[in-house]
Design a binder for these strands. Structure first.
Lengths: 112, 112
DNA sequence: GATTTGGTTGGACAGCGATCAAACTAAACA
DNA sequence: TGTTTAGTTTGATCGCTGTCCAACCAAATC
């Protein structure tokens, strides 16, 4: 039920957030969390072809950047986005990243 | 008058853009370009306490990620944001990053 | 208490990236 | 043509980072 260290909402730094999102594995993870909500690490790991210790590393990067919150519940961890807090500090940022991650706009083909 | 290599608008990758923005020097440079428009490298370098070869490296990262366009004009280079193209592909992304970079929202103090 | 389970930590490794200095290149100018 | 100017390229350094494996740890279960 406790929460490992994370930055207070007012101290989340943009560069850290961008850096946390600038990795394919973490970006996919964030997109997944956005669509599925809170998830157990086990469930996430099951779908990712990466060692569990590597995933643990990514969880930490996201958490320490202020992107996610990890709640310890018994012997499992639940991870979810700090969506509202992030949006309060950097309005529109997370949403535009998520929309970019899931629906990048393709250029319309030119005929002629 | 020629333009060094840059990705076509439709092939700009989100991870590359985020990675390009996830550096203090480049983020500041992008914010500066957003407020001042196109600039010569010399002018930019003058205000940044970083070696010119380092700046050249940053210009390349931004350009190859699709964030900026560099136009060679005689013996000087003009750098500017590919604002419209970026916004067409990842709507709202650049603007939210710029607004986050220049006006991060501070939490309101609680009097209690 | 011993074992299983879910996840972290530490070590090792390879690769990358930010930085500076020095050498280089191409354009402009004297 | 030689020199200055604007910026790139190359080389070196050094710290960071993504990855795996092995060891560890705490909670839950037997």
């Amino acid at each position: 039920m406790n929460v490992p260290w994370e930055p207070p909402a007012g101290e989340i730094r943009l560069v850290d957030v961008l850096d946390a999102l600038a990795d394919p594995v973490r970006l996919a993870l964030v997109a997944r969390l956005a669509s599925l909500g809170s998830e157990k690490c086990t469930d996430i790991n099951a779908d990712v072809n990466v060692h569990k210790s590597t995933m643990s590393h990514h969880y930490r990067v996201l958490r320490e950047a202020g992107v996610t919150r990890t709640v310890v519940h018994g012997r499992q961890r639940w991870v979810r986005l700090r969506h509202a807090e992030l949006d309060a500090r950097f309005p529109g940022l997370l949403d535009s990243v998520l929309s970019a991650a899931t629906h990048p706009v393709q250029p319309t083909a030119r005929h002629g």
